[in-house]
Design a protein around this nucleic acid. Sequence first.
DNA 1: GCGTTTCAATTACATGTGTAATCAATAGTG
DNA 2: CACTATTGATTACACATGTAATTGAAACGC
Lengths: 124, 124
Amino acid sequence: MTEISRSEYEVLEAIWLTHPASAQCIIERLNQTKPWHDKTVKTLLGRMVKKGAIGFEKQGKSYLYFPLLDRGAYQIAQSRSLINRLFGGRVAPMVAGFAKDQSLDKQDIEELKAFIERWEQEHD
Amino acid sequence: MTEISRSEYEVLEAIWLTHPASAQCIIERLNQTKPWHDKTVKTLLGRMVKKGAIGFEKQGKSYLYFPLLDRGAYQIAQSRSLINRLFGGRVAPMVAGFAKDQSLDKQDIEELKAFIERWEQEHD
DNA sequence: GCGTTTCAATTACATGTGTAATCAATAGTG
DNA sequence: CACTATTGATTACACATGTAATTGAAACGC
């Protein structure tokens, strides 16, 4: 599974939103936030097809694209990769790093606490 | 502050370890884990100097390199960037993502709990 | 059926990256 | 002082990426 680039990821997000989706549809979704030329998006779609990140089925003359990567799995893989590279593979040091930077607020802490509680109930 | 690549980051880590450090020294450190040719490391050092990620001072004919980026700050910036791109900017969903994947163990949870407790004491 | 529109496929091109080799200057060594 | 070894600087080169333009083929309008 080749790497997928930042721009490609943006396109993939637009596909995850709802799929299958036509190139036009994907372009329109993206253009609500990104000022990308349609040719550019087409290129990215083509590259992702080649990489096996997305697939397509013909519908008349145009294509309908759909993801071949699971969003959650991809997110975890990326997170894991970053945490391995930067934090020796442990999650907590990363979270702790944010604190020093005032990058964590009360809401983050509450969410984390809620998550931990759930985790502990589920595990034993 | 231009982007710094994966390989460059590895070199930077070797410099953070102790600095200032000569190219030879950096190469030796790296070679304990990476089979990189010394020419390769030199190239990366040069590129990072150009990018302003590291600096150097002459020592006789060779250089002593030192970091210009703070390790912690860099780690946070990268983490923040990933969390923004993949998790809408919130930390908890990322941590929660790991759970589904069995990527979190008891130790992680304990570390997180300890961290949260400390955070709560420090804030109000 | 012929021109026009619409797609996907192909090509383009500058910059970044991985991975070095070669060149040039300098410092030791005999 | 000439020769060699070292070390930074310059050059190399293929593949990735951002960002499109051009081409070719199919469909649609008239």
